[in-house]
């Protein structure tokens, strides 16, 4: 067993202020712990990892961890990461985004990064809300939920992030939750090792901006909700389409072996008669 707290000391930046910025009960800390355990398991050195983040609660993660870290503009993390990967394919790049970051303002970048199948790992922390700005509804806020900009309830259909990225061509798609923290680090280490574009959606409770407004209870209640409504993918598939309520599948949902962008690009270099440095 990898002990999170002990392992964290290896990876946290000692010159940052702790406890971290996230609210009591926020799931992002659990996700960060899972990410660190996953990286520890993959065996990459700190220098080989680049952690790119967007803007919002999840965006703060890059500040805390002792890798090559890049805190980008809102929604654009994948664009920056694409540039880094193409410039230095040796680096392992993990892109941490929130739901609004990845699927609203960064939605275009997300679908095209899937399509290109660039060898990056995207960790999308989905807490169903814009937390940092004060609880506005995001593309993953469920229907009829309250948000600071949806006081009468949301009327927009939410995205299923995993289905979205699967349809766009991601090589590896997995979902886990903060309740399934151990599974989350397993999914993440698989994703990091995977060649091609991998997406791990981490459902994560926001007890303050989302939970409180929608009477979801405490952080513990929200995690228990994940426990009660999650199913393995095979079990989920057995549910007749009309009868799926709030249930969702967790685990590996897509795992394809396809050439990634750089592999294809090396063919271009060959055709052009060049020599890839």
């Amino acid at each position: 067993m990898i002990h999170t707290s002990e392992t964290m000391y290896k990876y946290l930046r000692p010159d940052k202020k702790f406890p971290h910025v996230w609210c009591a009960g926020c799931g992002i800390g659990i996700v960060m712990g899972a990410l660190v355990r996953a990286i520890e398991r993959t065996g990459f050195t700190k220098d080989e990892i680049v952690l790119v983040s967007g803007i919002g609660c999840s965006g703060r993660m890059s500040t805390y961890l002792d890798f090559n870290t890049l805190h980008t503009t809102h929604g654009r993390a994948l664009s920056f990461a694409t540039g880094i990967k193409l410039a230095n394919p040796e680096l392992n790049i993990i892109v941490v985004m929130g739901d609004g970051d990845a699927t609203a303002i960064g939605g275009n970048h997300l679908i095209h990064t899937c399509r290109r199948n660039i060898d990056l790992t995207a960790l999308i922390i989905n807490n169903n809300i814009y937390g940092m700005t004060g609880g506005q509804y995001s593309p993953t806020t469920p229907m009829e939920c309250k948000a600071s900009t949806a006081q009468y309830g949301t009327i927009e259909k939410p995205f299923d992030i995993c289905k979205l990225v699967e349809a766009c061509g991601a090589s590896f798609v997995a979902r886990s939750t903060t309740y399934h923290a151990k599974m989350l680090d397993a999914m993440l280490s698989r994703a990091i090792d995977k060649k091609g574009f991998s997406v791990v959606e981490a459902l994560s409770q926001c007890p303050v901006q989302y939970g409180r407004r929608n009477k979801k209870g405490s952080a513990v209640d929200m995690m228990m909700w994940y426990k009660d409504n999650s199913l393995s993918n095979p079990a989920f598939k057995k549910i007749p389409p009309g009868e799926v309520g709030e249930q969702f599948p967790v685990g590996i949902l897509v795992d394809l072996d396809e050439p990634d962008y750089l592999e294809r690009y090396s063919q271009i270099v060959k055709k052009a008669g060049g020599d890839r440095l």
């Binding site: 664009s79 694409t82 410039a87």
Partner: peptide, 24 residues
């Protein structure tokens, strides 16, 4: 031995060149 990529828009193009520069 260089890389050409056509991005999905100008926003990501600018992001990508910043990323590349950070990678040296």
């Amino acid at each position: 031995g260089g890389t050409f990529i056509q991005m999905e828009d100008e926003i990501s193009s600018m992001g990508a060149i910043i990323g590349a520069s950070l990678a040296g």
